[in-house]
């Protein structure tokens, strides 16, 4: 299991919202991975001793813990640890941590230390804006001209009544979730550009052709070129790695 799906599984056990803490934890993880890759490259050709001494799974776990805090979806450290341990050892006989066990306290202290290491890798820049809120706002804006022809209804009832638009909203939302599966999409664009990109792709896949790319970009007040770059990222830009 790669680390992204590992984080997704643990987040699911913790019942974390997909659009906030889960997405943010993945965002943190991609930045950690970029940092570690860069560290490895800078130490290439040197001897074994300076090999990165950071444990990836432990940091992935810290990403979840920190995301819970910054997204105000409170989960106890104990719960994060238990969920991670259960996912990691679900195939073995002892998949539950026991607080009587010395191992539990060792893991807990390690996770607290790993959280401090994580915020240092992130340079304490922990605020992540996800595109989801923008998507809702944008879809509402895009539906406004159509509402004029259907009197006495707000955008919520309009979406429910129009199957195509319901599908558009769902597809956009799913695209926004998928943004966080890949570092190239999640580390490159800002939330507003990503939101526009998610809707552009969703409009294509749901065949709502009258919603042009230009119309969506105008509503989001973003550059079409930026949206194009967000959809087809060429490489991972250096995300605030000094």
């Amino acid at each position: 299991m790669n680390h992204v799906s590992w984080i997704l599984s643990v987040a699911q056990v913790l019942e974390l919202p997909r659009h906030s803490s889960t997405a943010v934890a993945l965002h943190y993880w991609h930045r950690v991975a970029a940092f570690m890759r860069r560290e490895r490259e800078s130490h290439e050709g040197q001897n074994e001793g300076v090999k990165s001494a950071l444990d990836e799974k432990l940091l992935a776990c810290a990403c979840l813990l920190l995301a819970c805090k910054t997204c105000e979806t409170n989960r106890r450290l104990r719960h994060v640890l238990n969920a991670a341990f259960w996912i990691e050892h679900s195939n073995s006989a002892n998949s539950f941590l026991n607080t009587d066990d010395e191992m539990y306290w060792q893991l807990k202290d390690s996770l607290i230390a790993a959280e401090l290491i994580l915020v240092r890798i992130l340079a304490f820049d922990t605020h992540v804006e996800t595109p989801h809120a923008y998507i809702i706002h944008l879809l509402q804006m895009l539906s406004e001209p159509l509402l004029e022809h259907t009197p006495s209804s707000d955008s919520a009832t309009f979406f429910l009544a129009n199957e195509n638009y319901t599908r558009l909203a769902q597809a956009s939302w799913m695209n926004a979730n998928d943004v966080y599966l890949d570092p190239r999409t999640c580390l490159n664009g800002d939330a507003r550009v990503l939101a526009a990109a998610c809707i552009v792709l969703a409009a294509q896949s749901t065949h709502l052709t009258h919603l042009s790319r230009q119309q969506i970009c105008n509503a989001a007040r973003v550059d079409e070129k930026d949206v194009e770059d967000a959809i087809c990222p060429k490489s991972v830009k250096k995300f605030k790695l000094k």
Binding site: L54, D55, K57, C61, L81, A84, E88, M103, S110, A113
Partner: peptide, 9 residues
């Protein structure tokens, strides 16, 4: 540090 994989670093 002990990881959830129980490996030590």
């Amino acid at each position: 540090l002990t990881s959830v994989t129980l490996s030590v670093s």
